[in-house]
Simulated assay, not measured.
Amino acid sequence: MSHVKLVESPPNMLADYKGETIDFICEDCEILKRIKPAALMEEHGNLSMPSLPALVAKSLGCKRTESTVYNRCKMHYHFSPDEWAKRMGYVNPQEHRKDALLFSDLREWHRLYAHCSCGRKSEIDAVKLKKALGEDAPVSGASSVLRCRKCGLKGLANIVVTSLARG
């Protein structure tokens, strides 16, 4: 009989993280850092997620990580306002607003534009997004799949719907 014991990975580890990047912020030091999980794994190994902000702050040269009482390091994870509201329970992600514009509401004279926070604005193909997300998806949800070609940010674009001028 084999005496093999299955060992489960502790919860909330870096290797379990499924996102594209991990964002850190420290308002006191004015640091906003976006790091890929693979780079963190290479530098620090498979650590628990709660221990990462302090290690990232220390690697960025923060002297406050050495203090345990006064003037402590306040580096923490950064989330978009929508993600923060979902995590805090203010927004139910399953619940759609009743007045939300759906892809099924769009007509051939409507045009969609993505406005990124970096200043880039571009027209986006409503037909492709409708096929990818579905007719009953809200148009505002398209920002979650769009990535800016200028700055590389994903999920933060504002979607603007316009109509062609009557001719």
Rank of each mutant, 00 (worst) to 15 (best):
H78W: 14
P53S: 08
K86I: 15
A39R: 11
L47W: 09
S80F: 01
L102S: 07
E83D: 08
E66N: 09
G61W: 01
G45K: 06
Q94I: 00
M41R: 14
S48K: 14
D99K: 05
H96N: 10
L55Q: 14
Y90K: 12
A57Q: 01
Y77V: 00
S59P: 09
Y77Q: 01
R72I: 11
H78M: 06
P81R: 12
T68R: 13
P53I: 08
P81C: 03
K74V: 07
A38F: 09
S48T: 12
A38K: 15
E43N: 08
L55S: 06
N92R: 08
G45F: 09
K58D: 15
C73E: 01
G45P: 05
S48V: 00
E95D: 05
P81Q: 10
A54Q: 14
W84S: 05
H76V: 00
W84L: 11
L60Y: 10
P93C: 04
K63H: 10
R64D: 00
H44Q: 10
L60F: 10
V91T: 09
P53Y: 05
T65P: 07
G89N: 07
K58R: 14
H78A: 14
E43R: 15
G89C: 07
P53H: 04
P53M: 02
N71W: 01
S51M: 06
G45T: 12
K98R: 02
P93F: 05
E42H: 13
N46P: 05
M88H: 07
G89E: 06
P81K: 11
D82K: 10
S59Q: 13
K86A: 07
E42G: 10
P81L: 07
P53L: 03
P93W: 06
D82I: 03
N71T: 02
M75T: 14
M49G: 02
M41Q: 14
A39P: 00
L52Q: 03
C62G: 04
H44M: 12
T65H: 02
L102Q: 12
K98L: 12
A100V: 01
Y70M: 09
A54K: 15
M49F: 04
G89F: 01
F79L: 15
G45Y: 03
M49K: 06
E43W: 05
Y77D: 02
S59R: 14
K86F: 05
P93R: 05
D99A: 07
C62H: 08
N71A: 10
W84C: 01
K63E: 11
N46D: 15
R87C: 03
D82L: 12
Y70E: 11
K58P: 03
R87K: 15
L47Q: 14
R72E: 04
S51I: 11
D82Q: 09
V69F: 09
Y70N: 09
K63D: 09
L60A: 08
V56S: 04
Q94E: 14
N71K: 11
M41G: 08
F79W: 11
K58Y: 06
Y90Q: 11
M75L: 09
G45C: 02
H96P: 02
H78N: 13
K74E: 11
L55F: 09
E95C: 07
V91Q: 11
S80H: 04
A100T: 04
N71S: 08
T65I: 07
V91M: 10
G61L: 01
H76F: 02
R72Y: 00
G61V: 00
R87D: 01
G45R: 10
R72H: 00
E66Q: 10
L60G: 02
G89T: 05
Y90G: 09
C73P: 00
G61F: 03
S59L: 03
